[in-house]
Nucleic acid binder design. Structure first.
Lengths: 143, 143
DNA sequence: TTATATAGTTGTATAATACAACTATATTGG
DNA sequence: CCAATATAGTTGTATTATACAACTATATAA
């Protein structure tokens, strides 16, 4: 069982996460949670808090608060659902899209600087393995 | 510039981190910060809060609090430095080592379950690329 | 048409963090 | 050699991201 590769991954993952979370505050305008929520709305279109909470693996109350922050900043619009007056959907605004793109670009630039000496092959592999990991986790959990 | 691989990595990294942070609470006894601090002491030996803070990229006050939690739980011992009465060093106890090992094993087991269908080659690559990323970041920041 | 289920919000609590103010001890320069 | 400064650590306060529980308003079902 004592798998050498697991040991390496386990160790590197904690360092990886720690470092990214601590440094990204200095480089990005939008904080992590806002960025992820905005990206979700931009990628998959308008949705209500329940759906968003499910998709983002968060509590509804958490998303509710995060969404109202974005509303206050005019990054998203809160639109009542005409078919169900209990619910709403949040739609990204043009200001929100702009802000998202700026942040995305800043993240790319930073990543690009870090990976500048990597071969294209290693960059591709890294992205694919992260994707594979995420997909594997999703499969295992959605039983 | 618009590098397809960067795009993939950027996207996958946020998902990766989000998912790990949210799920690990359910599986581990020690929380993330305690685990990392304990692992640091186990790996590199006794140290004071200043050194620990530098090595872990945290504020001294943060480490000070985290260390006192570990002291309360008897996982580490706070030993005065005989050569400098301002300072201390924290040393992991046998209870602490045991707790660390149990947690490490639980993390391995979980990771092992997730990666059970991966080839040895992919596991190795993934660990090595994470390591390479971490090393690259360290080089770039320690100018 | 009442009982129950659902979408969302808000109150409260917790964890991890940083910064600033502070205490106690060491080191250094006139 | 002692006054000024630097250093190790702690504690007060604030922020951010999160969850759970209680609640409101609306919809659906028995």
């Amino acid at each position: 069982m004592s798998d050498q590769h697991l040991d390496l991954i386990e160790r590197q993952v904690t360092d990886f996460i720690r470092r990214i979370i601590l440094t990204e505050k200095q480089f990005n305008n939008l904080d992590r949670s806002a960025y992820i929520l905005l990206r979700q709305l931009a990628t998959y279109g308008p949705a209500g808090v329940k759906t968003l909470a499910q998709d983002l693996h968060l509590d509804i109350s958490t998303v509710s608060r995060q969404a109202s922050v974005l509303v206050d900043k005019k990054y998203v619009e809160k639109i009542p659902n005409p078919d169900d007056r209990r619910s709403y959907y949040y739609q990204i605004t043009s200001i929100g899209s702009l802000e998202l793109e700026e942040n995305k670009q800043r993240r790319y630039d930073r990543l690009s600087g870090i990976l500048e000496d990597w071969s294209e092959e290693d960059k591709e592999r890294f992205g694919l393995l992260l994707k594979k990991y995420n997909e594997t986790v999703n499969e295992k959990l959605d039983l």
